[in-house]
Amino acid sequence: MRVPRWVAIGAALVAGMATSACAQSGDPAIDRAQHFYASVSHKDGAAACADLAPEARKALEQQEGKPCAEAILKQGLPDMVGEADVQVFGSMAQVTFPDETAFLSRYGDDWLLVAVGCEPATGDEPHDCSVEVG
């Protein structure tokens, strides 16, 4: 039986949009976040800053009045963040660790961190993050 074109397009659309909302462990966003926290724990500020989005780096440098590589190590970020979970919605991702939350944005084929050091949110309130864009 030939499936009508609009049914095929609709099914593909729904399937595509539904799968874009969830992601498996080992996701590039998780890899990026884990690399960032590993760099922080190894006191490698330059490597950690390379995982931040340009606007996040700029915001941190303006906030601290120091180069990113130096400022990022003074944010009191956790050394070990544990197992990660990720939720991807369009061009944004949220990586959640047991005691830490990070937000990432897609830049081309890559993911970069736009907020780190985020404390658990209360209700519908935004997370309070030690480094964030904007």
């Binding site: 909302a21 919605f89 944004m92 519908d124 935004p126």
Partner: peptide, 21 residues
Amino acid sequence: AQSVAGRVAYNETRLERFQDP
């Protein structure tokens, strides 16, 4: 389809505001 895509787009905006999805 609107509800599925709308939720993803809405959550994308929430993540940009550092809110939970």
